[in-house]
Design a protein around this nucleic acid. Sequence first.
DNA 1: CTTGAAGTTCAGTCGATAACGAACGAATTA
DNA 2: TAATTCGTTCGTTATCGACTGAACTTCAAG
Lengths: 154, 154
Amino acid sequence: MTLRDQTEVREEFIERIGLISQNDGLPRIAGRVLGMFMFDGGVRSFGEITEELQVSKASISSATRILEERSLIKRVGRPGQRQDFFQLVENPFPEMLETITVGLKKAKAEVDESLVQIDPANEGALARVGHYVRFYDTLIALTEAAAKDLAENR
Amino acid sequence: MTLRDQTEVREEFIERIGLISQNDGLPRIAGRVLGMFMFDGGVRSFGEITEELQVSKASISSATRILEERSLIKRVGRPGQRQDFFQLVENPFPEMLETITVGLKKAKAEVDESLVQIDPANEGALARVGHYVRFYDTLIALTEAAAKDLAENR
DNA sequence: CTTGAAGTTCAGTCGATAACGAACGAATTA
DNA sequence: TAATTCGTTCGTTATCGACTGAACTTCAAG
């Protein structure tokens, strides 16, 4: 069986991660940056990223900031060096889950706020909203357990 | 401790679920419909929903279709009745997870497609993308287990 | 100190999608 | 059959956020 052109395979992969990220509420360009690092590995300068992906400095600045905030990439300092350098963190998967967990906790807090204000006499609402909060608890426990697992078995 | 006006509490809850749903990629109005059913329980006619939430028939038609597709509400037929009636399904939480699982499987399939096309000599890319696929496997297993659990312990 | 390159910030543009109004189709009632 | 009510569909509008270009800040090099 023959192999496809790896340049194409790489481009497709990067674009796919971009689209997947878009579905997850991440800017598409941030996903493409992530995809590039996943495929290539190693270290890239800010300028190389803009050139590689053919997008503006502003977009890369924004994308790298988001990815850095989420601890998916890290800025590797080079003292006495003009350019910024980046690379994937060693194990980005627990961090991906962490982002999910944070979102779940925010949502749970919102629902909780309503729950405590429901008239106890309104048993139906209390039960249904209570279930909803426990649903979030289940998800949060799951994602945290999974993150721990993924962090240990790297 | 005195209780807050329950009308306000209800409105706030409905709006909150709307915003949370929006974050999850669901139209805000669909989330508000869901919130209304969660708070109130029972059965509501199409017309009641439009009046209750003060939105157009078109939007409610779209929202109910989406929620019905996701098996979060069901249309309860009333033979010889002009209006459509809806209510929450008995246990909507496994269905919420199901939607997540479907999304994860789609994403995994995308990444898998790339994985099989990577030159085996490119060990780094193979390892990193392979990890990514296994990450999805972990998540899919988790959400499916949770859905099963939530379906049994209702 | 001046020059120039690097990266951030900000205002504006563009594209995607939610929400609406209006027209339409279906179906029950008179 | 005519009339009315109900829900969907379709074309339009409004809203939101990503992306860009350009101005600005910072800092190394000369």
